[in-house]
């Protein structure tokens, strides 16, 4: 009899904790999304003001092409199919071409803003954070409007997105509401940066996703760019704090972001090669210079 009471009490506790956690996650997400709500009244005015040419540069900085184009296998621009191995299984990037059925051609700019800033799909579900919305959460309105204009101008490719092959159940997606409370800032602060370089590095370019350590729950809690011994694909990713880069000049970094060559004359491979080739190589030299200058500044973690 005592055992039964004990069991019931424990079961009740578990239910209370579970419900509270979900409620807490829900409340947090509501607050977070309200903080960005100004964006979701994006009217047609902003939509039509989007500049596709600038938008391509946003896409390059944000790594959209490197992740959503299967260059190695000759895949079409933004048609998806790139695999990303992680401890949670293999994520496969979806088609984000302007195709209305396979891609995101039927999206509004608000839906894109929801995805980037809040990590929410148009159907209201949470994205798996393989899509780096914890970094995109600070993206500026104009960048999103421009990116939207460019995405909509790309060739529509009718090619269904492949499924992820995950080791965690689909049901775990619900728990992402709680996960976001740890990693997505509640306030929308796109102007909190010292300048363009810091904004690009911390925001769209999402350097911390690979160059910072992940914690127990698979998120980047401490955004210091002090490297990650267990990066994507099991490779070790170097530290890129100002101290770690002490032997690099700003010019060296700019050159690296343009063609992938280190000061010693070696050429990078792995994911970084794609980040450069599909991304930073196409940025304006002013943007590369800004990123390099920020990485070398004391603001970028003076300690190792």
């Amino acid at each position: 009899m005592r055992a039964l009471w004990l069991f019931l009490a424990m079961a009740l506790c578990a239910v209370v904790i579970g419900v509270s956690a979900v409620a807490y996650g829900h409340a947090y997400n509501t607050r977070m999304e309200q903080a960005r709500s100004a964006l979701f009244t994006f009217s047609d005015a902003v939509y039509s003001a989007g500049d596709p040419e600038r938008g391509e540069s946003v896409a390059r900085a944000a790594g959209c092409i490197a992740c959503h184009t299967d260059t190695e296998n000759g895949g079409a621009l933004l048609a998806g199919g790139v695999e990303l191995d992680s401890p949670f299984g293999t994520f496969v990037s979806p088609n984000i071409t302007s195709d209305r059925f396979s891609g995101i051609g039927s999206w509004t700019v608000d839906m894109l803003a929801q995805a980037l800033l809040n990590g929410r799909r148009p159907d209201g579900k949470h994205y798996w954070p393989a899509f780096p919305y914890t970094a995109y959460a600070v993206m500026q309105r104009q960048d999103i409007a421009d990116l939207f204009a460019w995405l909509q101008s790309t060739d529509p490719i009718q090619e269904a997105s492949p499924e992820h092959e995950l080791r965690i159940p689909e049901l775990a997606r619900v728990g992402l509401g709680l996960w976001k409370t740890l990693y997505v800032p509640v306030d929308y602060q796109p102007d909190r940066f010292s300048g363009r370089g810091e904004y690009l590095v911390e925001g769209p370019a999402h350097c911390a996703e690979c160059h910072a350590r992940r914690d127990l729950f698979g998120g980047v809690a401490d955004r210091q760019l002090s490297g990650n011994s267990r990066g994507p694909e099991g490779a070790s990713v170097p530290a890129i704090t100002a101290v770690a880069l002490r032997d690099w000049t700003i010019k060296d970094l700019e050159f690296f972001l343009e063609i992938g060559m280190t000061p010693e004359g070696d050429f990078t491979g792995g994911h970084m090669a794609a980040v450069i080739e599909q991304g930073t190589a196409h940025l304006s030299s002013a943007d590369r210079q800004a990123m390099a200058a920020y990485l070398k500044s004391p603001a970028n973690g003076g300690f190792e």
């Binding site: 190695e72 490297g227 490779a235 070790s236 990713v237 170097p238 343009e258 063609i259 992938g260 060559m261 050429f267 990078t268 491979g269 792995g270 970084m272 090669a273 794609a274 450069i276 080739e277």
Partner: peptide, 20 residues
């Protein structure tokens, strides 16, 4: 030089083990 060097990263990306 940039044109020639694209093969360096292009090759390392697929065929070289990256380690710190």
């Amino acid at each position: 030089f940039f044109r020639a060097s694209r093969s360096c990263s292009g090759c390392h990306e697929r065929f070289r083990l990256e380690q710190e």
